[in-house]
């Protein structure tokens, strides 16, 4: 399978199953499009007719392009066959270790963000804080089920984790004790809205947190529209100076500023550029996922505008990088040269198998977005994963599990997509959240184009 598209002056051909990327001129672009379905002589006839006015396109030239395509095919770099399907169905028998836990240390929040998937931090349940004892057991559970893996990731999540800060600090101290005993290395991370950031938190985070995720939606009027305090005030002016101080004190590394865009700001690149103008360089901006009935829900009519925005973002990122003041956009981070192997590309994020979320009461869920839905309870940190049938279901939830993905060129980049989004959109973790797929495909097209541009390849026309 191949995918052909034109973007920013480049004619790009992605060979799906080899991972090869080609940049071609208009003649080669047309020849490749016909190659698998049309006899060579007919391709020659059509090309000579189409390019009749161009002196450099003659029969010998077209046949030379056909030869080049044949050579690439023989080398496995074009029209490569899908040889991974059987591999995908061995995944159920694969033994997995647990690599990461998301600790819900606080099911409560000091903001009331309208679009919060966690229902203002409560996850459709009661307000709660994780006790040190539950958190300690969670770390013990992770160590015990991590096999020979050394690096273990633990994210302090909520709600707002800074509302249970003393427990966070005690758990980090406990983890540091245990890692020496068990030859492990904890990489602690923190996801925060920033309201409670102060010098003490910043100093501790800089010392102990491998990464921090800072929630900011962009321009003040956009951010304050939906991210409001419990007293119904905007939070932008409270958090931005704190984020700037934190990022500066971390040397500009080990953080992401992460926003959500909605129907209210389909011009979301302006929010990303605003973040960059505030001095932040590690950026992420996600489309809101919610019921279509919500006033801030993205609509079908928004899609063309969103596609255009992703293209604007890509070309502006190339320009800014050349000018010496580039920034990183999470979804355009694409390592084509030494990126993930085919096993990782098929198996996806690891939810429900290598990654679990832990509630304040010690209950285990496939990921933070399933917390509160009892059907997806997997066990607890004392007894471990008891719902092994559900774990097997997540093991098999991969790039080859969804019939709707069969003809999608992007499935080895999304690994079949987010199980939680699929579940919330269709009622099944093997469903397809089509709106998200359309945005994902556009982002991958842009990300590949950036790689092509940064490799110094000539434009196609």
């Amino acid at each position: 399978m191949i995918h052909q598209y034109k973007l920013n002056g480049y004619n790009i051909v992605l060979d799906v199953y080899s991972g090869s990327v080609h940049v071609v001129d208009p003649l080669a672009y047309d020849v490749i499009a016909l190659y698998e379905t049309t006899p060579a002589d007919e391709i020659v006839r059509q090309m000579l007719e189409k390019y009749a006015g161009q002196p450099d396109v003659n029969e010998a030239e077209v046949r030379e392009v056909l030869d080049s395509v044949e050579q690439l095919k023989a080398a496995g770099k074009l029209f490569a066959p899908d040889q991974y399907e059987n591999m995908a169905f061995d995944f159920k028998n694969r033994s997995t270790v647990i690599k990461a836990l998301c600790l819900h240390v606080a099911h409560t929040c000091n903001l009331t963000c309208s679009y919060c998937f966690a229902s203002q931090g409560k996850y459709q349940g009661e307000r709660a804080l994780m006790s040190f004892e539950v958190g300690k057991q969670a770390l013990d559970f992770l160590i015990a089920h991590s096999g020979s893996r050394r690096n273990l990731e633990v994210d302090f999540f909520g709600g707002e984790p800074l509302m249970n800060w003393d427990v966070v600090k005690r758990l980090v101290a406990y983890g540091r004790e245990q890692e020496k005993i068990h030859n492990k290395k904890f990489r602690f991370t923190l996801t925060t809205n920033g309201v409670l950031l102060d010098d003490e938190v910043i100093e501790f985070a800089n010392r102990e947190m491998h990464n921090v995720v800072l929630s900011l939606d962009g321009r003040k009027e956009i951010h304050d529209r939906l991210r409001r305090t419990v007293n119904d005030k905007g939070s932008y002016d409270i958090i931005v100076p704190k984020f700037q101080k934190l990022v500066e004190s971390r040397g500009g590394q080990g953080y992401y500023v992460r926003g959500t865009f909605t129907h209210a700001n389909v011009d979301f690149t302006n929010d990303i550029f605003h973040m960059a103008d505030l001095g932040f360089t590690e950026l992420s901006m996600e489309p809101v996922v919610c019921s279509p009935d919500e006033p801030y829900a993205l609509t079908e009519e928004d899609l063309p505008k969103l596609f255009e925005q992703y293209e604007i973002l890509a070309t502006e990122m190339i320009r800014r990088k050349k000018a010496g003041h580039g920034f990183t956009f999470y979804h355009y981070m694409l390592d084509l040269k030494s990126g993930p192997c085919i096993y990782k590309r098929i198996s996806g994020c690891g939810s429900g198998t290598e990654y679990l979320a832990v509630t304040p009461w010690g209950e285990l869920y496939p990921c933070h977005q399933f917390v509160g839905d009892e059907k997806y309870s997997m066990g607890d940190v004392w007894r471990g994963v008891t719902n092994t049938a559900l774990r097997d279901e997540f093991k098999m939830c991969n790039a080859y599990a969804r019939p709707d993905c069969k003809d999608c060129w992007a499935r080895l980049y999304c690994s079949g997509g987010c199980a939680a989004n699929a579940y919330h959109a269709t009622g099944s973790i093997r469903g397809v959240y089509d709106y998200g797929c359309q945005l994902f495909r556009k982002r991958i097209e842009c990300a590949i184009m950036i790689q092509v541009a940064e490799a110094g390849m000539s434009k196609s026309e």
Binding site: S68, Q83, V452, A455
Partner: peptide, 24 residues
């Protein structure tokens, strides 16, 4: 050149899986 090819990891070769990647 009519066809330029980017230097990319060969996925078929990558089938020849250490499992050390994070939840690359």
């Amino acid at each position: 050149n009519r066809i330029q090819t980017l230097d990319t990891r060969d996925l078929a070769q990558s089938a020849q899986g250490c499992g050390e990647c994070q939840t690359q």
